[in-house]
Design a protein around this nucleic acid. Sequence first.
DNA 1: TTCCTCACGC
DNA 2: GACGTACGTGAGGAAA
Length: 874
Amino acid sequence: MTNKLVLIDGNSIAYRAFFALPLLNNDKGVYTNAVYGFTTMLLKVLEEEKPTHMLVAFDAGKTTFRHETFKDYKGTRQKTPPELAEQLPVMRDLLNAFRIPFEEVENYEADDIIGTLSVKAAKEGWETKIYTGDKDLLQLVDEHVQVALTRKGITNVDTYDLKALDEKYGLTPDQIIDMKGLMGDSSDNIPGVPGVGEKTALKLLAAHKTVEGVYENLDQVSGKKMKEKLEANEEQALMSKKLATILTEAPIETNIEDLPVQEADQGALASLFKELGFQSLLDRIGAEAETKEDLKDLEVIIPEKLTDEVLTEECALVVESLEDNYHHAAIIGAAAANENGVYFLKPDMLQDPAFQEWAADPDKKKWVFNAKRAVVSLGWEEIKLDGAAFDVQMASYLLDPGASSHDMADIAERKSGLQVQHDEAVYGKGKKQQVPDEDVLSQHLGRKAAALLELKPALEQELDDNEQLELLIDLEMPLSVILGRMEQHGVAIDKEELEALGKSLTERLEAIEAKIHDLAGTAFNINSPKQLGEILFEKLQLPPVKKTKTGYSTSADVLEKLEDSHEIIPEILLYRQLGKLNSTYIEGLLKAVNDKTGRIHTIFNQALTQTGRLSSTEPNLQNIPIRLEEGRKIRHAFVPTREDSVILAADYSQIELRVLAHISQDENLLKAFQEDMDIHTKTAMDVFSVAAEEVDGGMRRTAKAVNFGIVYGISDYGLSQSLGVTRKEAQSFIDKYFESYPGVKDYMDTIVDQARENGYVTTMMNRRRYLPEITSRNFNQRSFAERTAMNTPIQGSAADIIKKAMVDVDAALEESLLEAVMLLQVHDELIFEVSASQADELSELVSRVMESCVELDVPLKVDADYGKTWYDAK
DNA sequence: TTCCTCACGC
DNA sequence: GACGTACGTGAGGAAA
């Protein structure tokens, strides 16, 4: 077997990694992005190339022998950014842990080390592969030497051998140097011949092979100007060529035989990754195995009796069930932890009156992980859980909604000294999921409870430091109980109504399908973008508007552009629309109806979105159609649980823009809401500089899209897409908007500065969102972070407000004599059911509480309506 | 399984 | 001037 040598251009790869990745830092505030990128590349190289020998070459000091030739060599290069410089030593630690040799040689560059070693290897008949981001190294390609150039990112590379080089540039490796000699290199400050770029250089070399060749045949060069330029710069061209030439005989002691790839020092690697916060890489090198060994047996007691030593005044409680969906999920065990010890409770012990009495006692404080899950899963077994006083998962979410995960295992890893295994590792996943033996289960749950006990005070302190304790205790904790009750109550569904809608949809779909197949001249799967693309853009020869990674785009906006070019298009759009209704809403909702209750029980995720909104799953009841009448009919199937009841919907009018008026204190916007103007018309008046009577439908539509953009933080591009105008026009609308609302502009500027300064933004109720990318040098990432900084306080404060409203409404209902139930929340809207006779009273109460739950400098306005179904509550 | 494309809501 | 551009959930197809 031949030996295989991999040579890595350390500085070049480090630079690439640094600029390709966002400026990550670990929990100690140390920058790690370049190290991270470098590591992923090393892992990939080791795995894919399986080299027998390896070396990473670094540049040494500031000056090299090349400076003797040309003192300004690399003269224009910017200083290494300090954020990168501090990472370079860490890379050496990393290489030591990997046991990969590295080298730097005084007076020479990494290129020269690589050149010299690759020649040595070639002489021995070894295969060599060079990893770099620098095209210069292509001059080293030969029969036994390949060069892998980083493309976008770092792990993506283009590999060049002689053939690939010829295909791409039509050059031999030696000619790479000639090319540099002619065109120069601004990054190394190699002058070349002024006026000669890549195109010209390639042309000259194709004709005359080398720099010297060009000058010998100067008379044959076309163009008087070009000839003059070449003539005037002959010396400079030859010097440039010399500068670009990589030494293959640098004085390097190292023998290639001394660079064998060795087994990495797993311990050193694991501890380094841990220190750097590279969790994903820890998993990748199989450090789980090692941490498992670390798990010493925790003493977990299985109590005979549930005394008040086991269930104390303040106690960590774990209630475990396996399914993601906790509605009617079997509880496989529980655990308690307190100052007396850690206890495992078998499922049947939860039926013990001693447990139930303790669980229901609000004065017995429970520290839990995902309170709603515990409340609801116990709730289905008729066990009341009250006094859930601190939710560790919620705390983690509030501290940093953007954290990579809010798993028990990961939170414990990040914030405590205790190790908790991932559920997946204990229970398996998918089909292989199962309940483990009792000793394993009791250990796992015991560890969770013990971790909760340790985490609660720590997280409580962190929240307090951030002034977020109130947000947790007075808002999210009470809300989780309310949401749990809403979920468990469920929403009644008129199955017959859905089935009838489904039947008519299916019939129409079949007819449309037949028509589409007929128009296409062949049967195919309309739901397959791939097949549909082939039919439209190949068979029917329609002009492709947009491409996706995998082929032609067939999205609605593309099809709408083609609407008039073929009669099949409108049919496809209709098929898509109805197909979506049928599969997601008719079939999806019918499947979600619970056998036991006949209702739909969604799960609200309270610890997921980056802005503080809720999300809803299995099924998602926050995206039931409303815009198009066809889909809106689905709402006919959402009915009250009782004959004589109605559905009542109460929604905030323009809550985000009102919040914006309040936090920006823009006078124009404040006034608009204080005078209860139609905000889109008002915006149209301002953006188009016209009077109210002159605002036409198109202007109002545009203004609405602009407001929408402000609220959701979309870019000029996003606005241009939604309006179907150019980016420039979209930008001019935004500019005009800011001119009219200078206070809003000020707010936007200030909040971005604030985000840059603090690293995060906050909402009215002190919800936080960290925006590390705000300092990124990548334009996209930075712009995105800036828009997020502007948008999150708006959307997040609106989320705060409706959450507060839910808590207040719940309390008000409790006090009132109304028999009303809160069913759903859809971001700016609350849905209830109530007996028909009390509907007006509820409407009045809900509107009043929602409007007064916070005091802003503009009024909050609520529209409420009710009817026999959700459809009718409009 | 996992990824991609598409479509629904706010 | 490049880059790929509010947040979510879910369905279906295609590739692994």
